[in-house]
């Protein structure tokens, strides 16, 4: 049993000039835990995600990450080289738009293999086999390994992006609206895939979404954001089934029932 969290966020605040991006956010993320950050556009959820994942620099606050040696490190006190290494080995980042997370003009195999090559793998055959195996795990046929993602459908691209991120066995994956631009049926397939990968690999994940159904399906715990503040948080089904805050009640009651 893991007695220590993987990530500790303390009083994270981000201002854009005088405007609040997110304000005084603190939480811990535990191994194997999936946290959903929900809220409408402009609520600060993507700002929060980018600040935690070091894609933006917070105005104040700290983010501590438990490295593989068990030591907690403040991400903003790390050297850039170390931080970038962490990002491409122990972390994943799944963008809403796959084109932001993929190299559209190189093959699927090279997209998946890039992280391996970045950490020093130098055996073409092994890299290609690993890439092919990962394509299989995200339900892309092995015979597409040499095709470029620009020839892929939106759902396939998103699955490829996931494979590209997971190939180094990261412990923490950030996802920004991972099902954002997809058709409903494609969404369902992707969600199920993400869910089972997260379960099988014991990943921790922070998922930003405005879609409460996504949050319900993927996350253990959720935080509701409004105007830069976390207004409610707790067990996902508790927040969705017994929302306390006026805004959360509004959100939950706004879900379309099918």
């Amino acid at each position: 049993m893991n007695e220590q969290p993987l990530l500790r966020v303390n009083s994270m605040t981000k201002y854009y000039g005088s405007r609040i991006g997110c304000r005084d956010v603190s939480f811990e993320l535990w191994p194997g835990e999936v946290l959903a950050i929900v809220g409408e556009s402009g609520s600060g959820k993507t700002t929060l995600l980018n600040n935690i994942s070091t894609r933006l620099t917070p105005t104040s606050g700290t983010v501590e990450y438990r490295m593989r040696d068990g030591q907690f490190r403040d991400l903003y006190r790390m050297g850039e080289a170390e931080r970038r290494f962490l990002m491409r080995t122990d972390w994943g980042f799944v963008h809403q738009n796959p084109a932001d997370g993929l190299r559209m003009t190189v093959s699927a195999g090279a997209n998946v293999g890039e992280r391996l090559m970045a950490i020093g793998d130098r055996h073409y055959g092994d890299i290609r086999n690993t890439a092919t195996r990962w394509l299989g795990r995200v339900e892309i046929d092995a015979d597409r390994v040499d095709d470029q993602p620009r020839d892929f459908s939106g759902g396939m691209r998103q699955r490829l992006q996931i494979a590209r991120n997971l190939v180094t066995g990261p412990r923490l994956v950030f996802m920004d609206e991972p099902t954002g631009g997809l058709d409903v049926s494609v969404q369902a397939r992707l969600l199920d895939l993400v869910r089972s990968l997260v379960n099988d690999l014991g990943l921790s994940a922070i998922v930003v979404t405005h879609d409460l159904a996504v949050a319900r399906l993927l996350s253990h715990r959720m935080m509701v954001m409004k105007d830069g503040y976390v207004i409610e948080q707790g067990l996902t089904d508790r927040v969705l089934d017994d929302p306390r805050e006026p805004y959360t009640q509004l959100l939950v009651s706004s879900i379309l029932q099918v």
Binding site: D237, R238, D241
Partner: peptide, 9 residues
């Protein structure tokens, strides 16, 4: 029941 299961606050 839902309170016991942690589903309701």
């Amino acid at each position: 029941l839902k309170m016991l299961y942690g589903n309701y606050g």
